[in-house]
């Protein structure tokens, strides 16, 4: 399936869950925050949420900043 992740189109297997995606990307769920189709998600509560074709996902983390 095709999804829009962090502003880019990417292909993923159908039925992918958020937990699986993060694992694929080597990201720790408690250190990122997700916005799915403009809604902020609590990552840990949504670890088993399935993603769908054309979902828009933002994966955000902390970086240095003043």
């Amino acid at each position: 399936m095709n999804m829009h992740v962090n502003g880019e189109n990417h292909q993923f297997d159908a039925g992918l869950t958020i937990g699986q995606l993060l694992k694929q990307l080597d990201l720790q769920p408690d250190r990122v925050v997700l916005e799915l189709n403009q809604n902020i998600l609590n990552t840990t509560d949504n670890i088993n949420t399935e993603l769908h074709e054309k979902d828009k996902l933002e994966i955000i983390q902390f970086v240095g900043g003043g």
């Binding site: 880019e8 990417h10 990307l25 080597d26 925050v33 970086v63 240095g64 900043g65």
Partner: peptide
């Protein structure tokens, strides 16, 4: 700290 999108091709380091 600031918030940025993860570069999913190169996730890098988390502050």
């Amino acid at each position: 700290v600031a918030l940025r999108r993860v570069d999913i091709n190169n996730p890098g380091d988390n502050m």
